[in-house]
Design a protein around this nucleic acid. Structure first.
Lengths: 199, 199
DNA sequence: TTGTTGCTAACACAACTGTGCTAGATAAGC
DNA sequence: GCTTATCTAGCACAGTTGTGTTAGCAACAA
């Protein structure tokens, strides 16, 4: 007997592959079942409805990203720490790019689909907290430029990163990866200049 | 005889209404025809394929936004001018919100659909130019903070605005509109502080 | 051995999809 | 008047969709 959770994870990963390759609209129960090498009857044994399957797949993406962020070494220069945390969100390599594409596909649908809006809101709140924590981390280390409103800066950084992710997804290639890192780097240099850290 | 271009515009607007109300995946030829009050045979007289219809609808959104940006009064304080231009892109009222939702739906699909990727790239280039022009406008007026790389700042502003739009779409309501304006305002204050303009 | 339970497969159903095709309606040019 | 081009409507086709139902399979407990 196979662990039920492992099977569900396998199916979620099949969803990811399809979303990345063909888009969310191709993630039908039949296609997912075929991609996972199962019959659609089997799939329905683990996920009764399609939204249940898609929701599980998205939630798993969020958990993976959070896990990687938690794994970042938080000692040393706090500007570098925040930079590393943001790097874990950017689509800089294949798996991370896949995660971001899944995120985007769900995000776009959540705008009109009330079912997904709840889950999307939950993720949004988690991310809001994460970026607030990053700004607080800079402030506590005395690295944040004086006179900045922490709440506004958290939202600004959050929006910037989402925009950078979007652009990196839409302009594939090495140069766009460099642009993404440079853009985030320039922003961090602006809100937490090296000089302010070295007093 | 009705003007063919007017008919095509009517159909594009029907696409928008459906995308905003039910999402892009509901924009089937039947639904669009019904929404516009035409038979699907008539629709196919104006648009042979579905992608042709959807492409026309997206292009029209871009043209409308560009038109509004061109209409902005460019005299006076250049920081205020840039702020007004960006306001024309943000989903602050119903019609602009609709435009942004259509943009997001197409954007998400363009990541995996090669057909739409071309059009999406064209729009991206236009927007890149638009934001570069905004930064140049600030620089020429002596309002841009010294020491900033204009190319990087254009990309940073572009990414920030896209992120702000995304967040405003996902968190409907008055407060999120205020947040959006505040976030953009804070960014402009940072890259073009009032002090630098008043020497 | 017989049940029982977790799991897999396969098919049926009604609804929907994009596109092709044909025929009728309307208006413009002569 | 007639002809021609433009426009509209409707149906057919083959395909896909989500979900429900039914039956068969393996593994394990009594």
């Amino acid at each position: 007997m196979v662990d039920a959770h492992a099977r569900r994870t396998e199916l979620a990963e099949a969803v990811w592959r399809i979303v990345v390759r063909d888009g969310l609209e191709q993630a039908s129960v039949r296609n997912v079942a075929r991609e996972a090498g199962l019959s659609m009857g089997s799939l329905r044994h683990y996920f009764t409805t399609q939204s249940e399957l898609l929701g599980f797949a998205l939630r798993l993406v969020g958990e993976r990203i959070e896990e990687r962020i938690r794994a970042v070494d938080t000692t040393g220069d706090q500007r570098a720490v925040v930079r590393s945390m943001i790097d874990e969100m950017l689509p800089l390599d294949r798996p991370r790019r896949g995660e971001c594409e899944v995120w985007l596909a769900f995000t776009a649908r959540a705008v009109v689909e009330p079912t997904m809006a709840g889950l999307r809101k939950e993720i949004d709140e988690r991310l809001t907290d994460a970026f607030a924590a990053m700004i607080r981390r800079l402030a506590d280390a005395g690295a944040l430029r004086p006179g900045l409103d922490q709440k506004v800066e958290a939202e600004r950084l959050y929006a910037l990163v989402d925009g950078v992710i979007l652009h990196a997804l839409l302009r594939p290639g090495r140069t766009s990866n460099a642009t993404a890192k440079a853009t985030v780097g320039a922003h961090l240099d602006q809100i937490a200049p090296a000089a302010a850290d070295e007093r």
